[in-house]
Design a protein around this nucleic acid. Structure first.
Lengths: 223, 223, 223, 223
DNA sequence: TATGAATGAGAATTCATTCAT
DNA sequence: TATGAATGAATTCTCATTCAT
């Protein structure tokens, strides 16, 4: 039941017969399993045993490819950022009208978080650890310059065409767009409990997305 | 020669001589220590040993007052919600103009999260555990009806006086207001790393607060 | 069979019923067991499991009293030095004639090493680790000043009374006296194998002691 | 992203490209590496991984040439004894005056131990294991008969010419000569710590050698 | 002859919790 | 109310060794 939250994505091999000697496949399986385990239990609560079992590999193999639990976590984190930033870049925000670009970005963020709840949990874990792992990675910060660049371009175009208000900081806006989805989805368990209301029903989801879109565009678009 | 005779550890926060027998004080100290420990390390990473040491009590005493780590966590969580909701109620949002009420709520949320970073971490932990503890508490949901009530009242007054737009869901709006601060502050470690930019300098803080206020009011206020 | 080498000295309690709550006794039992285990297998080869079993305590208790394997090793080492230096001081070398004092010291060293083979092995281990643990102890070097003092006194008295040669360095001499027994006993397994000759039979022991005594006195005493 | 792709370890001592197929060279490299590793960490503390890395060969190759860690240790031990006994035989002790022969033997032993500290550590390890490996070797004891023979000859010649005292057991004397250097050098870390004095400075070394020589000759030579 | 992939059986250490006083 | 002593069940990580090519 606990596992249900995470889509079964590439069911682990779990084969009883001796594992294929396929280094790449083994590493991928380990990373997939680790991502799910870390997402489900956090860094501290994750168990190397369970990761091995999920991945269908011998526990020792994890240490063969990844040095320790911590560096495995970093590897998972890097893959996670690669995932979202990679898809994000395919939105082609610079090719469409500014208003449409903002709509797309909000919807994409919302959909991605919905489809990848583990991403939220991983970030929470990493923040609990004060970005200790992230700070060892040079790859990750590099992925974010284009994002800021793109958003700045959208905002500028919007302003120049007289549609958007002036003086909007792209980083500030990005954090707001992300935060609107992040908090709703990542804290959905406590929120739905304290407000006694389902947040993930089909209707609720539609409503949230339009609320967020209206909120952001209501602010950006000047009349 | 042996450990117990030469306690080389960092000097305990409280006196070494047997603790005064003060039940209330002990419980409070335990809760404070637990809150800090859970905030710093999450539920999984928290150590009963450290809580006892921080609280200056014998570990056994924690079990005397609180049944287990889990129920200690719940007690901490209840106190945390009591804290924020209690202060929130003193904002007297129903007594002031709708626009001012929204400003106050945004600023209060921001300031409270800033002053109580442990609140964010506790919520993250609780969500990681799918609100398992919260669901055992009847006190907490009860605290939130007035909040929704109050916000609904503000929105209605704003609409009736022709200032606010119509059809705004108070829960939806509350989640947005909270999320805007929550994500920025709770994920500050990863965000400042990936965006290579300090988020907690005096100037950055002022800017964030006005960005959030403009965002929300830019959406709510109709022209 | 392997255990036979070390005298059973204070048979471990090994009781099945819950252990007495006697902190001192527990610590002593652990130290005794650790000494035997370290002596038998070296630091690297020693097993915390076996120490716990030998001591008749729960493995966890070892960590309760001693921080780690390494600091347990240091505690054992300190006790070992205390043992030999303590007995040595009761020889009253300053009270007897110089020649007799040297005889006594040689015989004592020989007998002590014979009775405490673990002392030799512990020192070997510590040297393998480049005295890493010893260097953390301030107690141990302090124990050795009196020894050097005493030996210096003996040598000086011997010289003044015209019996001993002049210019003998007490540290140098002590190392020689210790080394003569140490190598013979500590390397007895390889030596008896390569020389195809028992070194620990009653006759061999008598012969070794008189050889060493003649060697040292033959050098010291001038004619 | 993963370990195996970014080998961050200290650059291996040998080339990374597949090793030349040179059976003799590989075996020699393995033995050298194993000797160093065993000397540094003892049998129990030695790591097959490190030996392979040090030797610049694949770990599997060690098992190809040497059956197991234990038999590798024996091979190392045999080479070590061959080394010292081989050089010793070139001293030509039977060709020189008895007094000079003894001087040479003492100096050689001292110098050899100084130049080959690993020899001492290997012997310590082997004695810790009660000469378990040595006992499987027939080669090693055979190397020692000539040594005893030679020393017996020196002693007899010395006695016959009226220079040496009578009744000196060559094995006994050899053990003493070896022990005087062995203990000083092999236990140098603990000794220099407890006596708070450097034992390996140039002056200290000269003094030790003359002390040992005087000690032994003071005993042997009759007046 | 040579190697990368894989593993089972431990190893030290940790942790929440209970016992006895 | 308060505490020092004690523990069973994990948990991460290690290690010599074997498999498949």
């Amino acid at each position: 039941m606990v596992n249900k939250r995470l889509p079964a994505r590439a069911a682990p091999p779990r084969a009883a017969e001796p594992r294929q000697r396929d280094a790449d496949r083994s590493q991928r399986d380990i990373l997939d399993a680790a991502r799910d385990e870390f997402a489900l239990h956090g860094l501290g609560g994750a168990r190397m045993d369970r990761i091995a079992e999920r991945a269908g590999v011998n526990k020792r193999l994890i240490y063969y490819y990844f040095e320790s639990k911590e560096s495995l976590f970093l590897a998972v984190l890097e893959r996670a950022y690669e995932g979202i930033r990679g898809e994000e870049q395919q939105l082609e925000l610079t090719q469409v009208e500014p208003t449409e670009a903002i709509r797309r970005l909000i919807a994409f963020t919302w959909d991605y978080y919905l489809a990848h709840p583990e991403f939220l949990t991983l970030l929470n874990s990493e923040n609990l650890h004060r970005a200790r792992h992230l700070k060892q990675s040079s790859k990750i910060p590099a992925m974010h310059s284009p994002l800021v660049q793109t958003l700045a371009d959208v905002l500028e175009r919007g302003h120049k065409s007289g549609v958007f208000r002036a003086g909007v900081d792209p980083v500030q806006l990005y954090i707001s767009i992300a935060g609107l989805s992040y908090f709703y989805l990542g804290n959905n368990h406590t929120l739905s409990t304290i407000f006694k209301r389902s947040l993930l029903g089909p209707k609720a989801k539609v409503e949230r997305l339009s609320h967020m879109t209206e909120l952001v565009l209501g602010y950006l678009v000047r009349d």
